[in-house]
Lab assay of single mutants.
Amino acid sequence: MDALKSAGRALIRSPSLAKQSWGGGGRHRKLPENWTDTRETLLEGMLFSLKYLGMTLVEQPKGEELSAAAIKRIVATAKASGKKLQKVTLKVSPRGIILTDNLTNQLIENVSIYRISYCTADKMHDKVFAYIAQSQHNQSLECHAFLCTKRKMAQAVTLTVAQAFKVAFEFWQVSKEEKEKRDKASQEGGDVLGARQDCTPPLKSLVATGNLLDLEETAKAPLSTVSANTTNMDEVPRPQALSGSSVVWELDDGLDEAFSRLAQSRTNPQVLDTGLTAQDMHYAQCLSPVDWDKPDSSGTEQDDLFSF
């Protein structure tokens, strides 16, 4: 819950932080000083300027060897085509990944977070970031790969997607708890209302004896509580940590079903599988986004697919 609360507080303090972009060759504004600060901008989305290598189908939802083989196929196909790589912007948030063309600003792909089953910074092609997700059109699994400016960037994108998945799962947990509370309150309110109706004398007997209905007592009954809980029953509950912020979080049926399955089948359902080692994760978390744009010590960066 700490990640969720800190993310909400950060967004309320400075929503404009989320509009910064990394990996864009110096076009961005001043960047936060450390990885923790940038992680807090996830709610509205972190932007990464990358190059799209392509996509291939895979048979399993996750796995280092599986993704490595898929990336190898994608890279080989991209090299064989001889075409310049498409420059894209990857927007990562707890909602998922939005992929747009840098030149036309046209939407290429919009992947809900619950469809993503794996992401990684490839070991062999260490400047490549990739994720595996279920197609929104059918049940097939797709591996999408992107060329980053350097290994640090690939690791940073991988960690960002993993963190977005974690925050999304926490949102789901909060929403589920809130819905259970509202359902319980609604049920209790309905029981109270039913009890009051059972003990209320029939209207005919009131008229016969000349008694008047006590409207004041009726007004004191917990009807307002019942209506408050039943009027918006169809509205999706939102985490309290975000009250007053500009973010509107809505959970669709697909996300609810997917996270429910994860909660039942996995020990740590909030953790998205990645190909990063503990050492890689520690190294990337210690980086400032400013470091992502620094040239690798191995030599001059080449803006070309064939540089790796």
Rank of each mutant, 00 (worst) to 15 (best):
S16I: 06
V111T: 12
T41P: 15
H282W: 02
R238K: 06
R13G: 09
G8R: 11
S265C: 00
D101K: 10
A80E: 14
F169S: 01
T267L: 03
R39P: 05
A241V: 04
D256P: 03
K84C: 14
R27V: 08
P61Y: 03
S205M: 10
G244D: 15
I116T: 06
A133I: 11
Q197K: 05
Q173A: 02
I113M: 09
A76D: 15
A70H: 13
M46W: 05
G299K: 07
T158Q: 01
A121L: 12
I132K: 07
G82V: 13
V207P: 05
K179E: 02
K91M: 13
I97N: 08
I113E: 10
L276C: 07
R13L: 13
E59L: 10
G254A: 14
K62S: 06
R115I: 07
D126W: 01
R9M: 13
D101V: 07
S135K: 10
G254K: 01
D293P: 12
F146P: 01
D37A: 12
K5P: 06
K84L: 10
T38I: 08
Q60V: 11
A68E: 11
K51N: 09
R238N: 02
P201T: 09
E257G: 07
I108E: 09
K220V: 10
S265R: 12
E33T: 09
G54A: 08
G25P: 02
L57S: 03
T225S: 12
W22R: 03
K5H: 06
Q270V: 02
L255M: 03
A219Q: 10
A69C: 04
K179T: 00
R95Y: 09
R95N: 00
S265Y: 10
T277M: 02
V75M: 12
Q86C: 08
G63A: 14
E177F: 05
T38E: 12
V111A: 14
P94I: 07
Q270R: 06
G23V: 05
K176E: 04
G23W: 12
D126I: 00
N105F: 07
T158I: 10
V75S: 14
V75I: 04
R9P: 12
F48E: 05
K123H: 07
D198W: 05
N211S: 10
L223T: 13
G24H: 06
A278C: 08
D234M: 06
K179I: 10
I12Q: 07
A154P: 02
A278V: 14
T100P: 15
Y52S: 14
L107K: 05
E216T: 01
E170A: 15
S288E: 05
K123Q: 13
G25W: 00
Q134M: 12
S205Y: 08
T200R: 07
A162M: 00
K166R: 01
R9L: 05
S175P: 03
K127F: 14
F129N: 15
K87M: 11
G45I: 11
L251F: 02
V58W: 14
L99G: 15
R238P: 02
E44I: 12
Q187P: 07
C199L: 04
K127S: 04
L31W: 13
E44F: 08
S265D: 07
S93A: 11
D126C: 11
A7G: 13
Q279T: 02
G23H: 07
D280Q: 07
G25T: 03
T274R: 01
W292Y: 03
Q270E: 00
T209E: 04
Q106E: 08
K181H: 15
N105E: 11
E109Y: 06
K150Y: 04
A228Q: 04
A78K: 12
G54H: 13
K123F: 08
G299I: 01
R95E: 02
V226G: 10
A68L: 03
A78I: 10
L47P: 11
E170P: 02
V167E: 01
K176Y: 06
T104L: 05
K87D: 15
Q86I: 08
P94R: 09
P15A: 00
A168G: 11
V167G: 08
S243G: 14
R95M: 11
M233L: 11
Q163C: 02
R151D: 05
T77K: 15
F146M: 01
E301Y: 11
K294P: 00
E109R: 12
A133V: 05
D256Q: 04
K5Y: 03
K84T: 15
M46D: 08
F146K: 03
A133R: 03
K204A: 07
G194A: 15
D191Y: 15
K87H: 09
A133K: 00
K84A: 08
V248F: 11
G194V: 13
S298Q: 08
I98G: 13
F48W: 08
T231S: 07
K30G: 09
G25L: 10
K19V: 14
K30F: 06
T38K: 15
G275D: 09
A7D: 13
K179W: 13
D291A: 00
V157D: 01
W249N: 07
G45E: 09
S21N: 14
E178F: 06
D198Y: 07
W292P: 06
Q136N: 12
I113H: 11
V111N: 11
G45Y: 07
K127D: 11
L103K: 00
A76S: 13
M153G: 06
F129M: 06
D293C: 04
M124H: 09
V128D: 13
K204E: 10
A208Q: 08
D191V: 03
S227N: 01
K30R: 11
R266F: 01
T36K: 08
F146G: 09
S67Q: 09
R196A: 08
L11K: 05
T38S: 15
T231H: 01
P32S: 02
H28T: 11
A78P: 10
R182G: 11
V247N: 00
Q264W: 07
E33N: 09
S67Y: 06
T231V: 12
E301H: 06
D280M: 09
A18G: 07
A69N: 14
S243I: 14
R196W: 01
R13A: 12
A208S: 12
L305H: 09
T36V: 09
I132S: 06
S297H: 13
L57V: 01
V192D: 12
D183P: 05
W172M: 01
K72M: 10
V161F: 09
T231W: 07
T274H: 00
L242M: 04
L42W: 15
V92Y: 06
R182F: 10
Q60E: 06
P61H: 08
Q270C: 00
F169V: 13
I74G: 08
D37C: 12
N102G: 10
F129P: 13
E301I: 06
L66F: 03
D101N: 11
Q60I: 10
A133S: 14
E178L: 02
G210C: 09
N229K: 09
I97T: 11
A219T: 11
A3G: 13
L212N: 07
L251P: 08
M124A: 07
S140V: 15
Q279M: 14
A70K: 08
I12H: 09
E301A: 14
K91N: 15
A185G: 05
R13Y: 11
Q134F: 05
S245E: 07
E180L: 06
P202K: 07
V226K: 07
L50Y: 04
M55R: 13
P222L: 09
Q139N: 13
R238I: 08
E180V: 12
V92Q: 10
M153S: 08
Y118E: 03
V157C: 01
C143F: 15
I12V: 09
S117D: 05
H137L: 12
D280R: 15
Q173Y: 13
A258N: 06
A185C: 05
A221S: 06
G8A: 04
L107P: 14
W35P: 13
T56W: 13
F259Y: 03
M233F: 04
W22S: 12
M281Q: 04
T231P: 04
L107W: 04
S140M: 13
G299Q: 04
L193F: 01
L203T: 13
D234Q: 04
S21D: 12
P222F: 04
W22T: 13
Y283P: 09
S246L: 00
M55G: 12
C143L: 09
H144D: 14
Q285Y: 04
S288T: 00
Q279Y: 05
G96Q: 11
N229C: 05
L66N: 13
T89N: 14
N211V: 12
G24L: 06
E65T: 09
I116H: 06
F165D: 07
T56A: 12
H137G: 10
V75K: 10
T149Q: 10
Q134T: 07
T149G: 07
S288G: 05
L212W: 02
V167Y: 02
A258C: 00
K83M: 09
W35D: 11
T104E: 02
V128L: 15
A154Q: 06
A68R: 03
L193G: 14
S227K: 05
G210Y: 01
G194N: 09
